[in-house]
Write a protein that binds this DNA or RNA. Structure first.
Lengths: 132, 132
DNA sequence: TTATAATTAGTAATCGTTATTAATACTAAT
DNA sequence: ATTAGTATTAATAACGATTACTAATTATAA
């Protein structure tokens, strides 16, 4: 873990990271807040947001936004693609290969420097197809 | 234009649509508000939001969200990809071919019904590379 | 025209997120 | 150990984009 000098790994920050690393459910800040409260009952919501921001800066986690009014967070910082169910709003990791040359392709074609890309699919998940 | 029975094309709605169709700059609701005010000075911001929502529902426009706290809107409802400059926050249309079979591919591989996908690239745009 | 319901302007409320502040707790140097 | 310095915290207030509400207006079809 790349530790910037001066940063401390507090029990709050560790708990937030642990919660995020232990799920693949792309939780919201509020869900993380509730989970961390089970470990540190008087943790503050502001602490959740501040640390999520710091952990993102550190490259430990990713922030996702899928057209909702709120963000979701992903404990896996390595690029991967997502499927979003427009019915139940579940976000599912996709196990498909990354287009690893596409950034360079776009860069050459356009002249913009491309650092990363994101790809998302929208539709109805397997579960939601059952209950129709 | 697919017109749902009961919906009216008011001058406000028409103005909002005109403003959006006449730019490729992916404006915010607030920018659209300022532009429409030049035509209808006492138009309300709530009217902007309500109509953007309705026009999106009608398939006339698209709503974009790029990790900001606000949405951007696109007068071109046909799927296309975007480049977002992380320095100046400009959003640029990309003239690259759509992966038109990828939705089916993911659908078959996962069992989820895939209706659409979005692909975005992030980096430093041509303009911002100059002023370093 | 007229009746009906969609739409509007204006404004208040909502809600996710961010900023503020005084208190706390690491960390390193004495 | 004791201190000084500073990152971090809990609690709470503030913020800003968006949405909801309401009475008045206006497009549309009969």
């Amino acid at each position: 873990m790349a530790k910037k000098p001066g940063t401390r790994m507090t029990k709050q920050r560790q708990a937030i990271l642990d919660v995020l690393k232990s799920t693949t459910s792309h939780p919201t800040a509020d869900w993380i807040y509730e989970e961390v409260r089970k470990i540190i009952p008087n943790v503050s919501l502001g602490t959740i947001y501040r640390n999520l921001s710091i952990l993102k800066e550190m490259g430990e986690i990713m922030e996702l936004d899928f057209g909702s009014t709120y963000s979701r967070f992903d404990g896996n910082p390595v690029n991967h693609y997502h499927f979003c169910c427009t019915k139940c709003n579940q976000v599912i990791d996709l196990d498909i290969d990354i287009f690893d040359t596409i950034d360079q392709d776009v860069s050459q074609a356009t002249g913009h420097i491309v650092n990363r890309h994101r790809l998302e699919f929208y539709g109805i998940c397997k579960d939601c197809q059952k209950d129709d």
